[in-house]
Amino acid sequence: MTDLRIVAIVRKNNLEEVRVSVSTGGRYPLVDMRVFSTTGAKRGEPAATRAGICVPRDQLPALIEALQAAEREASR
Rank of each mutant, 00 (worst) to 15 (best):
M1N: 10
T2Q: 12
R5K: 15
R5T: 15
R5L: 15
R5D: 15
A8K: 03
I9C: 09
R11K: 14
R11S: 11
K12L: 15
N13T: 08
N13F: 05
N14G: 12
N14F: 01
L15P: 06
E16N: 15
E16K: 07
E17S: 11
V18G: 01
V18C: 09
V18K: 05
V18F: 07
R19W: 01
V20R: 02
V20Q: 04
V22Y: 03
V22M: 07
S23T: 10
S23W: 01
S23V: 01
T24G: 09
G25T: 05
G25W: 02
G26F: 02
G26E: 10
R27A: 14
Y28T: 14
Y28D: 13
P29L: 03
L30E: 14
L30C: 10
L30M: 14
V31D: 12
V31P: 05
V31Y: 02
M33W: 03
M33T: 07
V35G: 10
F36T: 02
F36A: 09
F36I: 06
F36N: 08
S37H: 04
T38W: 03
T38K: 08
T38M: 11
G40N: 05
A41N: 10
K42L: 13
R43V: 12
R43W: 10
R43N: 15
G44N: 06
G44W: 04
E45V: 14
P46S: 09
A47H: 05
A48C: 04
T49R: 02
R50D: 15
R50W: 02
G52T: 06
I53D: 08
C54E: 15
C54H: 03
C54G: 14
V55H: 05
P56C: 10
P56L: 12
R57D: 15
Q59M: 14
L60G: 04
P61L: 04
P61T: 06
A62P: 04
A62E: 14
A62G: 11
L63R: 00
I64S: 09
E65I: 07
E65N: 13
A66V: 00
L67M: 04
Q68K: 10
A69T: 07
A70E: 04
E71K: 09
E73G: 09
E73P: 00
A74G: 12
A74W: 01
S75W: 03
R76H: 08
